[in-house]
Design a protein around this nucleic acid. Structure first.
Lengths: 139, 139
DNA sequence: TCGAACTGTGTCACTTAACGTTACAGTAGA
DNA sequence: TCTACTGTAACGTTAAGTGACACAGTTCGA
């Protein structure tokens, strides 16, 4: 899984925890411990999927697109991280004679896709509100 | 997920597909398209968990530790890839004052661990025999 | 209308993880 | 004892992840 998922979840939890649910990329980046440009890039993707609203210009920044209880981690994963469960490196060679060597990539692809589906199903049961509650009650 | 999982599964499927279920690290590596040393390292881990038997010396190599139907991908994952679902990069800072910034790591850790469990549960339903069948019937 | 404070996005540099290569000790059979 | 194996460590190389910077576009207030 890529770390952009972590950043997306953290950003949304951070916004949900603020009284007015509003912040700039700079303050979000400071809380996450990364740089503002990276945050803006990810938030831009979230905006295109209506998870946040953005406002450019003076007094602008990011706000939640809907209630924290309505945003599931599964949706965030689908938007940000689809395909990242599968490793980059592939074994075998589609042009080879041996059926194992030539067909393993297709078969493993299916297995990774199905595994990813099971992760998404699990993450769909967790909302930003749930994560915020856990953050607030963490020892 | 790391690509060592792919290599482990491919190796076991390759062995299962051979009449005598026996091969050297060199022939396995050739089928996978990687180098023998890498295969040996992974097979060594599999041996410690009784998934394969190894034999050093002349005429040595690797054989399956049990029937292809008895080896699930979930077991392989646990042996080879536990912990690899979580990204290396972490957001936040445990020593910070803000509860989001300081607690998010613990909360995300739990989420990644649970997600990994759901992947393992899914992979436990797939055996090496299943993968071999898919490889043989792939278009 | 000008300037300050924002986002959106691209590019390049740097850091780190992934992967390959080589080497060599240990083992077993011919 | 020679050959063909595994086991493992060390090092070099390549690719991915991350950070830093730049700048155009947007918005609002003075």
């Amino acid at each position: 899984m890529n770390s952009e998922f972590t950043i997306a979840v953290h950003s949304l939890v951070f916004l949900a925890n603020l009284p007015d649910h509003r912040a700039s990329s700079e303050s979000i980046a400071y809380n996450i411990c990364t740089n503002p440009a990276r945050v803006r890039k990810i938030m831009s993707t979230l905006r295109k999927n209506s998870l946040v609203r953005t406002k450019e210009g003076l007094g602008g920044g990011y706000t939640l697109g809907c209630s924290p209880a309505e945003i599931s981690l599964g949706l965030i994963y689908r938007v940000i991280s689809t395909g990242t469960l599968k490793p980059h490196w592939c074994s075998g060679d589609p042009d080879a004679d041996c059926i194992v060597k030539s067909n393993i990539q297709t078969v493993m692809d299916d297995i990774f896709t199905e595994s990813e589906q099971s992760v998404i199903r699990h993450l769909e049961q967790i909302t930003i509100e749930d994560v915020l509650k856990k953050v607030r009650t963490a020892h």
